[in-house]
């Protein structure tokens, strides 16, 4: 069973083709970076993987569940961190997480136990009673990740989760999620356009203009060259 499998996925907005025959898979417990410049189709891919919208062309399998034929089973197995903030800023972190647990049908003591465990895992336990508004950007993102882990998903999807964060917070969150993948056998797909968020041992998929341009381990893709240079060559975009 794969953690995540995308097979021949295509999608277009009217005449504009956003994704074309996208194919890749990520093994359980692997951290896969989905690297692509702005407009490469990463957000469209995330929209399809989270079933915000659907397509007839291609297949998405999450922890063995086909998203088209068994959408609820598949959605129950994924945790998603969106680019946009989803926290209610006027509620405490704990209340935000309880709300999310309820959206997964988890309530009462079970929700409280999972909330504590998820916050603890992200080093956020002491912030549980703070209002989301009072957290800094880095802690808000951590709270978002804790939220996405509440229901013990097999696959964690993160759509440019470090947008707007300073370098130290970014590095901290990248390291945390790498640890999560290793320690919890969690399949992680991390979409970014920043090459410094990709580690040498990661799986790497480079997406550009809706197509997969490279797929493999970072060392296989780069062949010893700096990733930034390889990314530039492949996409012709200015990488950071």
């Amino acid at each position: 069973m794969t953690g995540l499998r995308i097979h021949n996925l295509s999608y277009s907005y009217g005449r504009k083709q956003a994704l074309k025959n996208v194919c890749f898979s990520v093994a359980p417990g692997a951290f896969c970076a989905l690297l692509g410049p702005n407009g490469a189709g990463k957000s469209t891919l995330f929209g399809l993987m989270s079933r915000l919208f659907t397509t007839d062309q291609g297949q998405i399998e999450i922890a063995g569940h086909d998203l088209r034929t068994a959408p609820r089973a598949a959605l129950a197995r994924i945790g998603i961190v969106f680019q946009q903030q989803t926290l209610d800023l006027d509620l405490t972190v704990r209340r935000n997480l309880h709300y999310f647990a309820a959206l997964h049908g988890i309530g009462g003591r079970d929700a409280a136990r999972r909330t504590d465990a998820a916050l603890d895992r992200l080093g956020m336990a002491e912030r549980a009673g703070e209002r989301a508004r009072d957290l800094n950007g880095g802690h808000r993102r951590r709270a978002e990740i804790a939220r996405a882990l509440l229901h013990d998903p097999s696959v964690l999807l993160l759509d440019e989760p470090t947008v707007g964060l300073d370098a130290a917070s970014r590095a901290g969150i990248v390291a945390h999620v790498h640890e999560l993948a290793t320690d919890n056998d969690l399949t992680v797909l991390w979409a970014t356009h920043l090459t410094d968020e990709v580690w040498a041992q990661d799986r790497l998929v480079i997406l550009d203009q809706g197509r997969v341009r490279a797929d493999g381990h970072v060392s296989d893709v780069t062949g010893g060259q700096p990733l930034k240079d390889v990314f530039l060559q492949i996409t012709g975009e200015a990488a950071i």
Binding site: S50, R51, L52, R72, A73, L75, A76, I78, I80, F82, Q83, Q84, Q85, T86, D88, F100, L103, H104, G105
Partner: peptide
């Protein structure tokens, strides 16, 4: 929807 909390709602496994 613009903020993201609608996405949260719509990606719940409930119908």
């Amino acid at each position: 929807r613009e903020m993201g909390s609608m996405r949260l709602l719509l990606t719940s496994p409930l119908p």
